[in-house]
Design a protein around this nucleic acid. Structure first.
Lengths: 248, 248
DNA sequence: CGTACAATTGAAGGACATCAAAAGCGGTGG
DNA sequence: CCACCGCTTTTGATGTCCTTCAATTGTACG
């Protein structure tokens, strides 16, 4: 992957790859983890576990996501990173990465941009959980995942995209039980909006999905995080790192 | 305020103060705002408005909070900033601040740290909305606000702290109706946990409040964003900026 | 005194949770 | 090849937490 060579060439950061099976944990909430990761393949659920057994997925890490906080060492992770699929990551020693960042303001700004992007998505999820119905929440999650993976909003009828999530994962992400997720998915199917079966999402009606997600109704000019995700999605970090090295 | 002089001296950024009355908007969702702000007094609700009239407060800005995204110009704001009280802010032209940040990696890292801190808080709110009851959500919000203002968890019985929020604000922050917030506040009062009347929060039983917020039950070693908020609360940004200039 | 906003209380309804059970399905071992 | 297991999905019945609607009170303000 480009980012790996970029960091090695530009800043002499030594890296190693690591492969994890489904169900493995990259790190756990509470860990003070001196390694940063860049996801090159697979899906990871960033989730918080409660003592009563509750689990909230705060975000999904997909290929292109950067995990860790260079220059902010000593902070424990506040979520666990569970592998939803087999995962491949590139590892960076945090200390080395921190040194590189301090010497290179552009790198710092890149990290800053990613943090802002993630904050943005977190706020979008907050709006979702705070004032939307089950149908809207699920539609919006599906739409967001589509946009993150494809880089644009859906426009083709019957397009299918692979999403390696169970109904339980969806429930943990949007704050619903798997039972209710199941019923709501059936509802979306009946209403000819979208169909999610066996890890495959088929968009039956792109416009209906966007409407169900509550995006279209925004006053014109008002941004939804979704509209701008293509610009600030994780791949962008990778691309910009590439520019950085060619400029050096 | 220190930060103002810090930025002026260190980087030659010109600033101006601005005063806004209660109810005014510093900026609106959708605005492409070329100004960054540092809150010196007053409270601001960062909220997203939906076309159906729904309103979700994603965070509160208190004195010490920095608003804006230097180096990421052209991004529309995804929330509105409504003044809950009269507010005083220091304004920075984004372009000048961006230039200063590019020349000073430390400044970039500071901004990065604040973005991470805010992401952290957003994820904590997500957990709150996703899997906690009304009682827990409200207790947790009150506790968080206490910690942000005081810099530590409550330990004195009957301590009172001023919080300029209405029950509607609380409802919009935790995803409940004002009606239910009212009932739940009464419940917390009856259970001798905490009392919130007329913009004054009286902590009746600090331990009970922490328990009600679902913080104590965490396995030892597991961090809650709350435990670390003192370390990364907004005042810290200000203090670190002070160090930055004295080192220069 | 009238208006506007915040808090309060009651009654009724709904959206979602909980509990329980069964069915589909891939994987493993006898 | 079949039996058995674990995981996911599905469906039904029942319950409850929270919303919605409505009306009343208190308080600040012009």
């Amino acid at each position: 992957m480009p980012i790996r060579r970029v960091l090695e060439q530009a800043n002499g950061v030594r890296t190693a790859t690591r492969v994890l099976p489904t169900g493995a944990e990259l790190y756990r909430q509470g860990d003070i983890c001196a390694t940063c990761f860049f996801v090159t393949s697979g899906w990871i659920a960033l989730s918080t576990l409660l003592d009563d057994g509750g689990c909230q997925i705060v975000d999904f890490a997909v290929p292109g996501t950067f995990l860790g906080f260079p220059c902010l060492s000593g902070i424990p992770r506040w979520h666990s990173a569970r592998c939803i699929t087999p995962v491949q990551v590139v590892c960076y020693p945090e200390a080395q990465l921190s040194r590189a960042v301090i010497q290179n303001a552009k790198l710092a700004i890149l990290l800053y941009g990613q943090a802002v992007s993630q904050e943005w998505r977190a706020h979008d999820h907050l709006v979702n959980l705070g004032l939307r119905s089950a149908r809207e929440r699920i539609a919006r999650l599906l739409l967001e995942l589509y946009v993150r993976l494809r880089g644009h909003t859906p426009n083709k009828v019957e397009e299918t995209i692979h999403i390696p999530l169970t109904q339980c994962h969806i429930g943990e992400a949007v704050g619903l039980t798997n039972v209710h997720v199941c019923r709501t998915l059936h509802l979306l199917r009946e209403q000819n909006v979208a169909q999610f079966v066996k890890y495959d999402l088929k968009i039956l009606n792109p416009n209906a999905l966007v409407r169900a997600a509550g995006v279209s109704g925004l006053p014109s000019g008002v941004p939804s995080a979704l509209n701008h995700l293509p610009v600030w999605c994780d791949d962008k970090l990778c691309a910009q790192l590439g520019e950085l090295v060619s400029a050096a």
